[in-house]
Write a protein that binds this DNA or RNA. Structure first.
Lengths: 351, 351
DNA sequence: CCTATTAAATGGAACGTTCCAATAAATCAA
DNA sequence: TTGATTTATTGGAACGTTCCATTTAATAGG
């Protein structure tokens, strides 16, 4: 059944008794071919066990149907969700996206981009690795390949960005905590080499200022954007003379870490210490306690990013508008009941 | 800086004042070229903004350096971990793997495989989607492309498989529960269209038989292999006249669901109902309570799979030995303290 | 029946690489 | 000096497609 050397359209042509051009037309679904001929060809294709050689085809055709998705951390469920959102769109557009993971490593990212370019991708959706250098996308841009960034942006870049409204999300969350009666607030996790960090922290600060929290009562703890980072932040914060009573976390992973660390110390998340996450990953809803979080509509952002890159490819441009996605605060249990003044644990039930 | 039409080695040749053959040799790092010539060429490459066209190259070369990883569900952290384990190996072998997600959909899998083949992959590592038909890999095999399955196998296939020792893992976990004093045991989640399911369930059954659990006291609940599935299984089980007191779950996701559902009912996982997971994902250790689970060395399996496919490619064979990875039970809190006879909740502290 | 028109099928020249065989230049042996 | 050998470089024929320009066959118009 399996012939050794791989079959080409010439083999098919011979088998079907037509010319290679005819075979090519059939492969492309051209209507110029008489149905019976097409059928004969299709049978031959089966018989010889043909696999289309896209590399050869791309030599002549303008561009391929391959799109690259470059993700900074696939083991982070948030980015996995994002990737899956994009995938859905690409799939229904008839393109197969190839996913590459950079593991938050700029060098790896460079390699991955190079490889994707060499495959002749038609476009790229990238969530850049932390520490990406300003020039990292120079070659991609020079080659005229459409790129869109998702979730993260580079400080100076002209590349279009699809991102949630981080500032507003953080503002909403912070305002909610203040509304609950908290007066000493912390921002946990993240580091200043991420543009997103500044956006979220900015929202936090603005809410504190607008709603009358003294600068001395807002505490910022940088840290890893992971469970571990959250644990560390909480430890540091609770070791203070006057610890905060609530925290907005850079993302849900950090928040999960905080919940965990609270439990470990025998504190009740929500009642003893309020925590709010960011991103609203699927797990947030099912956590114990369920995590209050800023929903960014992850899948929606992914879909949007995919649509934008598809449109860019189609209209052969390398420019597009940025998109700032709407956010909203999903209140669950982790931010606890309303807080009665400065007592240590509130007892009220809800607002 | 960016010329419109993309540069080829001919442009480089012109720029550097050498022949295209020389450029080609430089690109391949051949030692036949005089160092100063090579330098001149490399400079020209930079100047014209050249991107290597791997498609064109593959037309002449035997096979590409692309390897495909086909994953059934990337949003499942377990498979994400697995993918990352493979990636590490491929990376250090100088190949860039492209990851494709099938979302547990055989039709999607078919498309993805087709696309990967068309790109001319040198090899494939696949964790087949549930419901994959027996013939799904016929064309891949016919084309002589090395494939290895990881974690899952197809009933009849000759394709090599890398998988943990599911039977033994389930046996160990079940024996542990019985050792704790449980006499009415359940197996939660999974469905019989997965070979893994039968392996794990087999281990469960064998342990029950060997250690004197009456057939009537071992309960099997099929269900989704997700948190939701776990929740559903627990609900059904507890609704029984004589409910089980412990469960071995098909995987950690199911186990997490069970822990959640227990809490929702006001039951204390471990003390009131023992649960053991399977796979030992990173999260298991950090859960509340920490989940007892069968560790399968996820990353190690991924690495092994990657090595096997690399070796197959290198030795141009399509055969390899199966590999059954060692497992071990990681005991944490979710299986609770030793159980004193048939009381409803144990009070002892540890063994 | 001949010519115009339409429909279907085809040959051949690209596309950007690799690699073999061949050439040119440099070095060496005598 | 001359031929043999080694070292660098090069032209050209593939590789498997697409697509333009043609050819061939079928149909219609008069």
């Amino acid at each position: 059944m399996a012939s050794r050397a791989k079959a080409t359209i010439l083999d098919i042509a011979r088998q079907a008794g037509v010319s290679k051009s005819t075979v090519s037309l059939v492969l492309q679904g051209s209507g110029l071919i008489r149905p019976e001929t097409a059928l004969k060809v299709r049978k031959a294709i089966e018989d010889v066990g043909y696999v289309y050689n896209r590399g050869a085809a791309n030599l002549r055709k303008a561009h391929s149907n391959v799109i690259g998705m470059v993700i900074n951390d696939l083991t982070n469920p948030f980015f996995a969700e994002l990737a899956v959102g994009m995938e859905r769109v690409f799939q229904s557009a008839g393109v197969v996206p190839f996913i590459a993971n950079t593991a938050e490593n700029p060098v790896r990212q460079e390699e991955v981009l190079k490889s994707l370019m060499e495959q002749g991708v038609a476009g790229l959706v990238v969530s850049p690795a932390r520490g990406t250098t300003p020039g990292a996308f120079r070659r991609v841009e020079a080659a005229g390949v459409p790129v869109v960034f998702v979730m993260r942006r580079l400080p100076e870049s002209r590349i279009p960005v699809i991102t949630p409204d981080n500032h507003r999300g953080a503002y909403l969350a912070t305002a909610h905590l203040i509304g609950k009666g908290h007066r000493r607030l912390a921002f946990f996790g993240g580091s200043s080499d991420l543009v997103v960090y500044h956006e979220r922290l900015g929202g936090f600060r603005e809410a504190c200022e607008a709603l009358g929290i003294a600068p001395a009562d807002r505490l910022v703890f940088e840290g890893e954007t992971s469970r571990k980072g959250g644990i560390a932040c909480l430890e540091t914060a609770l070791a203070m003379a006057a610890p905060p009573t609530a925290a907005l976390c850079f993302n849900d992973a950090v928040a999960f870490g905080v919940l965990l660390a609270l439990r470990k110390r025998g504190l009740e998340p929500g009642a003893d210490f309020a925590v709010v996450g960011f991103d609203d990953v699927a797990e947030a809803e099912h956590y114990m306690p369920a995590l209050t979080s800023v929903s960014v509509n992850t899948a929606g952002l992914g879909e949007r990013a995919a649509h934008v890159v598809l449109k860019m490819i189609q209209s052969r441009t390398t420019r597009a508008e940025d998109h700032i996605g709407a956010v909203n605060l999903v209140v669950r249990e982790s931010c606890g009941p309303d807080r009665k003044e400065h007592g240590c644990a509130g007892m009220g039930d809800a607002a």
